[in-house]
Design a protein around this nucleic acid. Structure first.
Length: 281
DNA sequence: ATGGCAGAAGCATTCTGA
């Protein structure tokens, strides 16, 4: 089962690139960020024609997330209110459309677009940290159901210096600061594993290159698009790759797709076993 | 310290991203 994530920087601008990539790669699940479109204007037909269903949590101009899936999406949760009691604070955070989740083939897929935060001394940075703390509350609720879980998306955080082309240039800068990394670590607890680092320990692998300063040509990139799997999914993890070539497209997104392969049959069987255990009790 | 490139809104230029 192939599960992918891609910040496309406008789905309408990137539509043909996305459908081409889907035709070539045939992912089972593709999580999108920065779709930049309200739900009623989302281009559904091209994906339905390829045999996929789409769920979305969209917004005009900014943000917006969606999940494109071959299999049915069930128990869909839009925004923080999907897991948290509705309050003024939750409603306020949910004005920005940055999170959508669903059960697909027995796996909980949580697709997130973490705020960028601008710079460490800005109000937006405060929002970023508060948003991540809200995500922590969200995940505490979600964890109670004991689901096999895949938490993925654009994290706007390089988890370590190995994930930045020149870490010395970005000490205590946005996406690289200690406070961001520690906040992320707190959320992951000992529950989630960075799928890419299961297979690759070295630096030099990026998922985002700035549009400016000829960054892609100079290979000045960051790895900020991440796929985390829960501990109970780790034994089924077969690979984790970065689709670097997509950055070389004409008018590309500044991010490329990242993707894991999960041994789906075994997950399915394990779920059957668990159901039987519950029955016996 | 600032802009650099790109997309959306909307029609000149500003806002936002990372």
């Amino acid at each position: 089962m192939l599960i992918a994530s891609w910040n496309v920087n406008s789905i309408r601008s990137r539509l043909s690139q996305i459908t081409s990539w889907i035709k070539h790669t045939k992912p089972d699940v593709l999580c999108l960020q920065e779709t930049k479109v309200v739900d009623k204007d989302f281009p559904l037909i091209p994906f339905e024609n390829l045999g996929y269903t789409v769920i979305m949590n969209g917004q005009k101009s900014y943000n917006g997330v969606a999940i494109i899936s071959k299999a049915d999406c069930t128990d869909i949760k839009y925004g923080f209110k999907g897991e948290l009691k509705i309050s003024d604070i939750v409603n306020e955070f949910d004005e920005q459309k940055r999170i959508i989740s669903a059960l697909i083939n027995g796996i909980r897929i949580i697709n997130i677009y973490v705020p960028n935060g601008s710079s460490l001394n800005s109000e937006k940075f405060e929002y970023k940290i508060n948003w991540l703390n809200k995500l922590n509350e969200y995940l505490i609720q979600q964890e109670k159901r004991g689901e096999h879980t895949c938490l993925l998306g654009d994290f706007n955080i390089a988890p370590s210096n190995n994930d930045i082309y020149d870490p010395n240039r970005f000490v205590e800068c946005i996406m690289a600061s200690k406070i961001e990394r520690e906040t992320l670590k707190r959320i992951l607890k000992n529950r989630f594993i960075d799928s890419f680092r299961v297979f690759e320990e070295f630096s030099g692998h990026w998922s985002w290159w700035d549009y400016r300063n000829n960054s892609f040509m100079l290979d000045r990139g960051w790895r900020i698009d991440l796929i985390y799997v829960s501990n109970n999914l780790l034994p089924r993890l077969k690979s984790s790759v970065i689709e670097r070539d997509q950055r070389g497209n004409d008018q590309p997104s500044d991010h490329v797709p990242v993707m894991i392969n999960i041994d789906y049959d075994e997950v399915f069987n394990e779920f059957d076993d668990e159901d039987e255990d519950i029955f016996e009790i």
